[in-house]
Design a protein around this nucleic acid. Structure first.
Lengths: 197, 197
DNA sequence: CCCAACTTTTGACAAAAGTCAAAAAATCAT
DNA sequence: ATGATTTTTTGACTTTTGTCAAAAGTTGGG
């Protein structure tokens, strides 16, 4: 059955899952039935700290950031995510505990939203869906670990260079202030690092 | 069938998996068939940088560290793992790429070793096994993310305090030099932080 | 028990990064 | 376009953390 029989917005998410483990028609139908396509404006808060994170988003287009507030109330960004990526607050979504993180769109975005209870149903109904879920979790885990290792071992300048090398496009879509906290440095230091190049 | 019919060393690993998703007798038998119980001395290298990481270990007793060498050749520890925990080099094991990390036992240890191809076979043969695999990956992911956030946002002293609060027993089993690099600080700074308390 | 090896602490100094305040530049809505 | 916001840069200064070298303390094997 050709893919065109499914709504166009689902092309991306099906492709991502399908590249890991073949998605049966049943699962595709279930995904469509258990999800909702939503369009949101830039700067929309998708998750507030304190709330329960019960939705996972697949970004069809647009982008978002995950951040939290440090003791002085300053925002610290932990992730930036864009088209064809999954968007959650990892801690809140995985543990079911109230979130300490916020999720906010960076741009006008189209998202596929799946509620956690629906996702859990699908994981229990289609055991092979856990195969893809596991692989995707592994993939994001590795991305997180890279970040950990960079923070542990590299200087501010080296972390900046790494990001420039591996994700230069980020600088076109995210303000330097946001990038600074992601790199674990002050905005002023980031500015100075960029200047001395 | 009572658990005592299985080798005593497998109690812990079965309990860990069983608490996530019921382990069928078939999977238990497969795990035993596809694994090996190994006893190793303290300071045994289980994985060398450059090698392919093709074994996952469950620690029956003992402990190990995962570390790598920075540009100056200094060791940086990324994980400490002990009894009833899974032991891998995340990047190497998940990606299949040659490892940049080393794994070394910290104490004489008993381990259950499963080769990656055997694990993959089990994941394909028993789809519900992916459910447990996914949940375990999520669990270790969260632990890693905590570490990332601490490194991004907390001062050396605050990171030390966090570790003391959440994992004080670590200090009984791991030298301060090893803990320093795990916290992303120099040994001297760690020593000074501890003194000023 | 004692020596050798390893681990931890200390001191003096240097380098990295943060803070605060203000100016400059860029962006956005009207 | 233009004034108002937001973002980025700059300067002066402070704090944090690192580095190097040496001393002190600890541990384990013979």
């Amino acid at each position: 059955m050709p893919n065109e029989t499914y709504p166009a917005h689902y092309q991306g998410i099906f492709a991502v899952f399908n590249s890991i483990y073949p998605l049966s028609e049943e699962i595709k139908v279930a995904i469509i039935k258990n999800s909702e396509v939503v369009g949101v404006k830039r700067k929309t808060i998708l998750l507030n700290a304190g709330d329960h994170s019960n939705t996972i988003y697949f970004i069809v287009n647009g982008g978002a950031r995950v951040y939290y507030l440090d003791k002085e109330g300053k925002e610290t960004n932990t992730w930036f995510l864009f088209e064809n990526e999954l968007l959650i607050s990892v801690y809140g979504f995985f543990t079911g505990q109230p979130s300490f993180e916020y999720i906010e769109t960076l741009e006008d975005s189209t998202l596929i939203a799946v509620k956690r209870d629906k996702l859990d149903e699908m994981y229990l109904q289609f055991m092979e869906f856990n195969y893809s879920g596991r692989k995707l979790t592994e993939y994001y885990y590795i991305r997180n670990e890279e970040q950990t290792n960079n923070l542990r071992m590299l200087s501010a300048k080296q972390r900046y260079d790494q990001l420039m090398l591996h994700n230069p496009k980020l600088f076109n879509r995210v303000s330097l202030g946001h990038i600074a906290s992601y790199l674990g440095i002050s905005q002023e230091t980031l500015s100075r690092i960029r200047k001395q190049k």
